[in-house]
Amino acid sequence: MQTVVVDNLSKCYKQAVALKNITFGVDAGEIFGFIGPDGAGKTSLFRILVTLLLPTDGTATVLGYDVVKDYKKIRNKVGYMPGKFSLYQDLTVEENLNFFATIFSTSIEENYHLIKDIYSQIEPFKKRRAGALSGGMKQKLALSCALIHKPEMLFLDEPTTGVDAVSRKEFWEMLKSLKNSGITIIVSTPYMDEASLCDRVALIQNGNILKINKPDVITTTFEKKILAIRSSNMHKLLSDLNSFEACDSAFLFGQTIHYTAKQNNLMMPELQNYLTGLNHLQVEINPIEANIEDCFMSLMNQAS
């Protein structure tokens, strides 16, 4: 069963087009990720799906309900965590949670089991005002508030933006255990490395979906061969690779540069000679598998 069905959905703000005829479906029980930079249209899409924004054109249903006509039904059944921290800063942790529980005619006690794993980590600070929490704790409180009415689906808009690598890792562990309890999760992120933690992802840019699939299918079906190259002078290596005649793209990836060639013709011996001729030392060239970021950048270039 599909929990979300989006058909030819568009959203315009005056001349600016935020979403261009997008179509996709989300299966029950999956973690579905929208991966894309700021301005890609992620937030507009989320706000339409949680009935806070009207689409310009097209249709969308969430849990079988239409996002325009049946908005009241949808609101009772979904949890939403906006990208910007939107809890009441001058209420305490406990007061915030109580507030959201009451709005949905439930209580913390009734649904405590749902949030126990997450909320217990911030419970020692339940008398602290939300505005005085650290980034990681705010995030846990926001997630608890989004869960307290026992939603069937969760919409999380960039929950890990600006969050350090450790807290990000922990947050994804929480999402995995929520998924195991049967909740469908739609999540957006600008961090490409988080794609592999989703069951399926949509790569989104400038209001268009570039690709939808399982992350490992996207990477294994990537048609370009990639070399990971390093030398003792990485900055010079980057500009030298870009000047190489057969170079299609060369991008820094942490400690190596990922290189693709025109017509997929890697010409490794020639490349090796070229770099040695330019006095590069400790040159290492290794063929590697593509990752999501390789695929995303390649799709971006094709789209522009």
Partner: peptide, 30 residues
């Protein structure tokens, strides 16, 4: 934060250029 992966890399090229011209770069990132 939040920029697309190509722009992010172009940004680092600018950082390298500035450093090559002698500007010291003190940077935080996630």
């Amino acid at each position: 934060g939040g920029v697309d992966p190509i722009t992010r890399r172009q940004f680092w090229n600018q950082i390298y250029e500035a450093a090559a011209e002698g500007v010291t770069v003190f940077v935080t990132t996630h």
